[in-house]
C-alpha cells in the first residue's frame, strides 16, 4: 500500500487522514491513475474513505472528480493503480451520476421509480410485496413527496425528480453512497431537504462521498474533504483541506492544464523506480 503521506503532488502540510497503514478504510485508492485515451484525469491518488465517513470531493472543472466516482463504481477501468472496496459488492453501492441517462418522459410513475431501489431484493422475477411498498412510501415521505405516488415522472420538476432519485437511494439501503453534483441546478429548498437526507445517512453510519461545488455547503455539512486538481491537493478535515493556500494551489494547477489534450505529452515515468 502506498502511503498517502508521500503522494507526489500533495502539499507537505496537508493532512491525509489515512496515512496509518493499519487503518482499514471502506474504500482504498492505491496510486490510482484514471483517464480517457491515456490522458490522465486523476493522477497518482492514494488514500482511503473511512467506513461511516461523509466526504465532499471538490476541485476545479476537469479535476477528475466525476471520473473518480466512476472508477469507484467500476464503470471505468483504472489506467494504473487500483480501487479496493472492502467487503462491498456492487449491490452495496448506490450511485447518483451527474447526468443520469434517465428518459424523463418515460411513462412510469413516481412510486414505481422508487420501487426500483429494491432491485437487489426482488431482481427480475420476485414480486414486490406490501412491506417493500411501505418502505418505498416511507422513503417518499422522507424526501417530502407523499401523495405523489401515482404522478408520472414526466410531470415532475427537476427538483422533484431529484427527490425521487434520493428516495430510490433511500430504498436501496446501500452502505456506500456516491453522489455526483447532486445539487447542481436544484432549488435551495430541495437542496436543504436533500442535505437532511445526506445527514440522516451519515447518522446511520453509511459512507457518503459527494462531488460538490458550493464550498459554503461543504464547510457546513461535510466533515471531510478531498480537494482534487487531477493531483490530490489536500485530503482531510474540511477546514484544513479548504484552507486558502490549498484552494489557490488547486486553481493554479487548473490554469496550467492545456485546453485540449496535450498530444505531445510523453508517457508518465513517475511510477517507475
Amino acid at each position: 500500500m502506498g502511503s498517502p503521506g508521500v503522494t507526489p503532488g500533495a502539499t507537505p502540510g496537508a493532512t491525509l487522514p489515512f496515512s496509518d497503514a493499519t487503518a482499514d478504510p471502506l474504500v482504498r485508492l492505491t496510486d490510482l491513475t484514471l483517464g480517457y485515451r491515456r490522458h490522465p484525469a486523476v493522477h497518482h491518488l492514494s488514500g482511503g474513505f473511512r467506513d461511516g465517513s461523509l466526504t465532499a470531493v471538490v476541485g476545479p472543472n476537469g479535476a477528475g472528480k466525476s471520473t473518480l466516482l466512476k472508477a469507484m463504481v467500476g464503470a471505468l477501468r483504472p489506467l494504473d493503480g487500483r480501487v479496493t472496496l472492502h467487503g462491498l459488492t456492487a449491490a452495496d453501492i448506490a450511485y447518483l451520476p451527474q447526468q443520469a441517462e434517465v428518459e424523463r418522459d418515460f411513462p412510469i410513475d413516481v412510486l414505481d421509480t422508487v420501487l426500483l431501489g429494491h432491485w437487489r431484493r426482488v431482481g427480475i422475477f420476485r414480486s414486490i410485496g406490501g412491506a417493500l411498498r411501505d418502505r418505498a412510501e416511507e422513503a417518499l415521505a422522507v424526501v417530502g413527496l407523499s401523495g405523489f405516488e401515482r404522478r408520472p415522472i414526466a410531470a415532475l420538476s427537476a427538483g422533484q425528480f431529484q427527490r425521487v432519485l434520493f428516495a430510490r437511494m433511500l430504498v436501496q439501503d446501500a452502505r456506500l453512497i456516491l453522489l455526483d453534483e447532486p445539487f447542481t441546478a436544484i432549488d435551495a429548498r430541495t437542496t436543504a431537504d436533500l442535505l437532511d437526507v445526506v445527514r440522516r445517512w451519515h447518522g446511520e453510519r453509511r459512507t457518503v462521498i459527494a462531488v460538490l461545488h458550493d464550498l459554503e455547503q461543504v464547510r457546513s455539512h461535510f466533515p471531510d474533504t478531498l480537494l482534487l486538481a487531477r493531483e490530490p491537493i489536500a485530503w482531510g478535515r474540511t477546514a484544513d483541506a479548504l484552507a486558502p493556500a490549498n484552494l489557490v494551489r488547486a486553481r493554479a494547477m487548473a490554469e496550467g492544464w492545456p485546453e485540449k489534450g496535450d498530444d505531445k505529452a510523453g508517457p508518465c515515468r513517475r511510477a517507475e523506480p
Partner: peptide, 25 residues
C-alpha cells in the same frame, strides 16, 4: 412477460440497470 422488468428499466434508466442489475452490468 418474463423479461418485462429489466426491459422496462433498460429503456427508462440504463445506467441504473448497469449499476444494480448484476451479471457484471
Amino acid at each position: 412477460a418474463t423479461l418485462y422488468r429489466p426491459l422496462v428499466v433498460e429503456c427508462f434508466d440504463p445506467g441504473f440497470l448497469r449499476a444494480v442489475g448484476g451479471s457484471r452490468g
